[in-house]
Amino acid sequence: MTRDPLIRAWGLLVGLSAAGAAITHMPDFTGGAVLILAMALVKARLILHHYLGLAGAPSWRRGFDMAVAAVCLLLGALAVAA
């Protein structure tokens, strides 16, 4: 397995995208929307940390992580409320 964090991040992004699409082919289950949004949050963090380079800027990384988590939390709450 590659040690390059960029390539590892790309592999995870592709894997999570495939997993997210595969989940929608399964019968509806409780928490499906939450699981899909949790995967989206992980993907967003991978892009922020490795593609955009926030892995080397801990203060900014924490701020952006919290902001994206807040957006996903809001979307998740609205999804569950439907």
Binding site: G20, T24, A33, I36
Partner: peptide, 8 residues
């Protein structure tokens, strides 16, 4: 992508 296409 997940919000528009995936969440049912």
């Amino acid at each position: 992508f997940p919000v528009i296409y995936l969440i049912r």
